[in-house]
Structure formats: structure tokens, C-alpha cells
């Protein structure tokens, strides 16, 4: 988060210029900071996929319960299923199967994915995060492709139940509504994010502080959006490894180690360079 480039700067640079930017382990820690410092305004960056939403929802809930008027959240929550649909709807879509993120499903379950698998005839495998989980998830996806199936399967059964964590979902929907969300490099996707419900508007940093309309602009050379949609690889990007590197990322996929561009940079640079073979050239063998 601290290193992710904004239009003109990043949070680490702002910290060096005197802003009080702190890392907390849990959103509840941010609530504690606000409770202990009533004379200061604390803004928590409530970002993430569905996995993080229960924690952020609880932070808002607790702030409300404590009656804090110096705690707000800047909400930028995004949802996985609408993004999958957006990719699948695209005429340039090259995705043949999905590994659904295990911890997102630990919270939300996989019932939302069943209509997607059926409608687009695409295999979806709920997968864990250990390296061998990923290998097994890929294996399960390939087996579906080979046998012509398109189902939701659960590789991560030790942690994920079909219905997810109902208790967590309940709190999330007490605090958040689903609404449109603009995705970096991709654009607006309908109903793809969480926003604070009107009852919690006073905890919305965008309401509390007059920040006007924020427009973020991407670096013109960055093709993160296409890379995220699977239509291009980092090797197709003119900035990759030249203008854009983990030291000086232009787009989010180069920032953290599991970002596509960062992973390419760590695994491919100077070694047996992966050729830019489009994924769709993999042939699907008939059962």
C-alpha cells in the first residue's frame, strides 16, 4: 500500500515529507489509535477484496459503537465475481479457467461462482495459497478442461465451505452496500465494490474531508489493465524492466511480490526468458 504509485506520489514519499502514515496489523488497531488520540483525525485505508471486508466492517462498527468522531475509512473494496464476469464478457477474453482465491471464498463461499461457471462454461477451482495448493488447483482445472467440464471445485476444502463464513458476511452487509467501482487500469465495473451504507456515512473519509472529485491517472506506458485481464503479458509492455521495475513501479502489478509484473520480473528476467506465448495456444484435448 505504501509503495503503490498514485498519480503524482506515494504514501512513503508523503511520510518523508511529514505526513503521519502508520502501518497497523489489524483495522481494530486503527480504531484504537483513534480512541487514544481524540484530538486527531485518523483515516484508515479500507482496501482489499472480500477477505478484508469483514475486518474493515468490524472496525467501522466498533468506531460507531464507541461514538468516535475522529475515525474515518477511505473505502476501496473490490469484489471478485463481477471482475471475472467483466473479463469473460470481453471480446478479447483469453481465460479458459479460473483459480478462485481461497481466502476470498473462506469469507464468501463459492455459491456466487456457480452461475459464472455454468453461464460462461468455464472451470473454477477454489484454491489455497501454498505452492502445492496452487499446483493441485491447476491440475484440477486442467482435468476439467480435458474432460470438457465447467464446474466449481474446491481444492482448499480444509479452509473453505460452500456457504463461506456467514457470520462475517452478515456484518459486512450491515456496514457495506454493493456499488459500482472503478478498477485501476480497467475502468468502471458495475456492482463490483463495497461502499459504506448511508447509516455509516459519517465514517466515510470522502464525506468528512472535502477532497473534491479525485481523478487518478495511470502512467501512459503502463498496460496493467490488459495484463490483469490476461490479454497481454508483461513482456508485451514497453515499460517492463525499463521504465518499470520493483524499485520504481509504474503500476500496481509491479509493486508486491505476487503482482503479475513483479512475478515475471523475479522469475524470468535474464533467465530462461518465457516467450510471449499467448495462453490460448494451449490446446484443449478432447475427452
Amino acid at each position: 500500500m505504501l509503495r503503490v504509485p498514485g498519480s503524482t506520489t506515494d504514501l512513503l514519499s508523503l511520510k518523508a515529507r511529514g505526513a503521519d502514515v502508520r502501518i497497523v496489523y489489524s483495522p481494530l488497531d486503527a480504531v484504537r489509535i483513534a480512541a487514544a488520540n481524540p484530538d486527531r483525525q485518523v483515516v484508515f485505508f479500507a482496501i482489499g477484496f472480500e477477505t478484508t471486508a469483514p475486518a474493515n466492517a468490524m472496525a467501522v462498527w466498533q468506531a460507531a459503537r464507541l461514538g468516535l468522531d475522529n475515525f474515518t475509512v477511505l473505502v476501496s473494496h473490490v469484489l471478485v465475481p463481477p471482475a471475472m464476469c467483466a473479463i469473460l464478457e470481453s471480446p478479447t477474453c483469453q481465460v479458459q479457467a479460473f483459480l478462485a482465491a481461497g481466502h476470498v471464498c473462506a469469507v464468501m463461499g463459492w455459491t456466487e461462482y456457480e452461475p459464472i461457471a455454468a453461464r460462461y462454461h468455464v472451470p473454477i477451482v477454489v484454491t489455497g495459497f501454498e505452492p502445492l495448493d496452487l499446483l493441485e488447483g491447476i491440475l484440477m482445472a486442467i482435468r476439467q478442461l480435458e474432460s470438457g467440464r465447467a464446474e466449481v471445485e474446491n481444492q482448499y476444502a480444509r479452509a473453505v465451505k460452500r456457504e463461506g463464513n456467514l457470520q462475517a458476511q452478515k456484518t459486512v452487509f450491515r456496514v457495506f452496500d454493493i456499488g459500482d467501482r472503478k478498477w485501476r487500469g480497467i475502468g468502471m465495473i458495475p456492482a463490483s465494490g463495497y461502499h459504506l451504507r448511508p447509516e455509516f456515512a459519517r465514517f466515510d473519509a470522502e464525506e468528512r474531508f472535502d477532497v473534491g472529485t479525485i481523478h487518478t491517472s495511470e502512467h501512459p506506458a503502463c498496460i496493467a489493465g490488459q495484463i490483469l485481464q490476461g490479454t497481454k503479458t508483461p513482456l508485451d509492455c514497453t515499460a517492463y524492466g525499463v521504465l518499470c521495475s520493483p524499485q520504481k513501479p509504474l503500476g500496481a502489478p509491479m509493486v508486491s511480490s505476487e503482482g503479475v509484473c513483479s512475478a515475471y520480473h523475479a522469475a524470468g528476467r535474464g533467465l530462461a526468458t518465457p516467450r510471449a506465448v499467448p495462453l490460448f495456444e494451449l490446446t484443449r484435448s478432447e475427452p
Binding site: S26, G48, A55, A159, V160, T171
Partner: peptide
């Protein structure tokens, strides 16, 4: 925080994300 896993008991294994247990592991 165990708010989302009210059934969890001592000795159980859970998956923790940003300070919240979100899932109990099935051994």
C-alpha cells in the same frame, strides 16, 4: 479477533487475515 468464528475452541486451527480469524481448518 474471533468475532466471526464464535464456535472456535482452544486448540482449534484457524486462518487469520488482518487480525481476524476467518475460517476454521478442517483437519
Amino acid at each position: 479477533c474471533l468475532a466471526y468464528l464464535p464456535e472456535v475452541q482452544l486448540g482449534d486451527y484457524v486462518i487469520v487475515h488482518v487480525g481476524f480469524a476467518i475460517s476454521q481448518l478442517d483437519e
